[in-house]
Amino acid sequence: MTKVVLDKTAMQRALTRITYEIIEQNRGLNDLVIVGVKTRGIVLAQRIGERIAQLENTKIPVVALDATEYRDDRTVSQPTPPQLATPITGKNVVLVDDVLYTGRTIRAALNALMAAGRPQKIALAVLIDRGHRELPIRPDFVGKNIPTARTEKIKVQVAEIDEIDQVILA
């Protein structure tokens, strides 16, 4: 049985709130860089970027990050540091992903980011936090906490890729 846990409107509102919170916490947008973890994290990062642009009339750099090579279940001995479109050294980075689960993806992303530069600060924003962490990682901005069983699957769908905006639990 699949169940829609967040519909289009709810998803829109969650992203909106995250955006406000980012503005609220960052006290200024000057050094802000938004980094999206592929694939759906990038779409969400772009949406947050667009929202900030609508509000503040300033374009915040939004960059995509592929941290596959940094995953602990891959055997790439010498990962190539990612080439980011915007330098992140000295910046306030907000890392964006769709679902936070064990924390391993984020760990890989953090490693990749550190390899690419030396940010002033990294914060984490996720649309869904479903629990079951295996690493000491906590999000700064959460769209929605959805307690799940390990056997369940959470799927975030975005119109750009999946032709629909919704989050389903299967």
């Binding site: 409107t9 509102r13 969650a14 909106t16 709130r17 906590r138």
Partner: peptide, 19 residues
């Protein structure tokens, strides 16, 4: 829906304070 936003704001605030 602004009332929902208000509720979300309260929930997020509580979560933040609990962190």
């Amino acid at each position: 829906h602004l009332f929902d936003d208000f509720l979300d704001l309260m929930n997020a605030d509580i979560e933040r304070k609990q962190r």
